[in-house]
Design a protein around this nucleic acid. Structure first.
Lengths: 247, 247
DNA sequence: CGGTACGATTGGTCCGACCACTTCTACGCC
DNA sequence: GGCGTAGAAGTGGTCGGACCAATCGTACCG
């Protein structure tokens, strides 16, 4: 798609006669080079100066384009070395995703949990069917770190790690990335903090143990149920807190 | 040791003494202003010139920072008018997400479908429980547009629209955003194109009708099953194509 | 009173210079 | 000869200022 002078595309749904801003054009250009296979994961791009010359735009604009794609996780700039295409793994592209869980407030938090309620049970069930002994051992180790006297920060980290480890067992990198985006550290920190205040964090520990047990038994149904109950529990609590005006 | 001017910051539990690049600092600054409530959704930011002065960075760097946050969907720049904070709805923040489905290739496509297989059944079931008559009528209209003689582009658009409409019925904006990201136009176009080549696109139409029927009956279980079969069908086909080397 | 033209404000683009980091090379020391 | 180091070249990062283009408010004119 290097030549923008297009005739009528048959059945095209795109808007007509695109007079894109210069920077936007630069973004599309680079994206196009990747989509067309001219640039493959890990490849190095021409220098900013060369690229800007090639497109007839200023280096500033080209830099903004690169910055945008860097933000998206498509490119990676190494000071002094050059700009590279990332491996384009889901994890690279969805890192930005975490902004949602970081910034979201109020009702959106409930929505996020609702989505996790759809994903985690399925993921946990899948993990139950696939987990090998080594993975289960590692999971058990993480489980031990939750709530064993550590600081609240450690507990949050361990909790996060536990769920991420389960999702990783599914072997689906996209799922891992989506899940990560939906469960940021700050998000979980808020929830845990509230729970500790509210009292029954022992209940969450039980949840975790049941989940682990189900995985250990390679029982997808039990795993699904346990994960559902767990997320549901958190969701219910959050809903209650929001209702009581603690936005 | 060029710029040693940095005292210990009081009360910070964050990582120690970060020597962030200037632009990155600007990004964090703005994000911080939002997180701290100094900037609320819809608010207008100071001008680029003012912001850059306030932070002691050049306007170019500030512009790159704004570009990054614009890319993330946190900010929105209006030529001549100013820079504004978006409403910070999930849809705003997850628009970037679609890059995944746009750029992904090979195995990642299967992963994406696998995630959709987790989400869509749950979403469809939820929709079945919530749909009102008006929503069902609109859905029926969309369904009619699929595969009724239109061009392939129209069919793809209608198919996309059908599934999105279902997800919207759930009323969960975050779910809608995630789903959108997982089902880009180009992604579906590739699948449809392949299917038409392969022949049995009639089967997909049946799938759609069954899904609609389940929604119409307000039967969550049937809806879940129908959605599962549908995604599974697409996934199986894609897997076959990848195995045959058409990555 | 309404509409239009103007001008101030503000984001968009461009240019050219210099700084900071990386990499490669060639020199010098052991 | 081998190895480490200093230097040069290349590249991204930052800077400042200039000008263009879109917007919006205002004051003037019909």
């Amino acid at each position: 798609m290097t030549t923008p002078d297009h005739a009528a595309e048959p059945g095209a749904d795109a808007a007509p006669a695109e007079r894109l801003p210069v920077t936007q054009r630069a973004i599309e250009h680079i994206k196009g080079m990747i989509a067309a296979g001219l640039l493959r994961p890990g490849d190095r791009l021409p220098t900013e100066r060369d690229l800007s010359a090639e497109l007839g735009v200023s280096r500033s604009s080209m830099r903004e384009a690169i910055r945008a794609l860097t933000t998206l996780g498509v490119l990676e700039a190494r000071h002094g070395a050059g700009v590279y295409v990332t491996r384009l793994r889901p994890g690279d592209l969805l890192e930005t995703f975490s902004v949602l869980a970081e910034i979201s407030q109020g009702e959106t938090l409930v929505e996020v949990l609702q989505v996790r309620r759809m994903l985690e049970p399925a993921a946990t069930a899948l993990a139950a069917a696939r987990a090998d002994d080594a993975q289960l051992r590692r999971l058990a180790a993480v489980l031990d770190r939750i709530g064993t006297g550590g600081s609240e920060g450690e507990t949050v980290a361990a909790d996060l790690c536990f769920h991420q480890a389960i999702v990783e067992i599914t072997g689906n990198a996209t799922l891992v990335a989506v899940n990560d985006g939906l469960s940021s550290r700050t998000f979980n920190a808020r929830v845990w903090h509230g729970h500790r205040e509210a009292g029954p964090s022992a209940r969450l520990r039980e949840d975790h143990e049941r989940i682990y047990q189900a995985l250990s038994d390679r029982d997808p149904d039990a795993a699904r149920a346990a994960a559902t109950m767990h997320v549901l529990e958190v969701e219910r609590w959050l809903r209650g807190r929001l209702a009581s005006g603690e936005g």
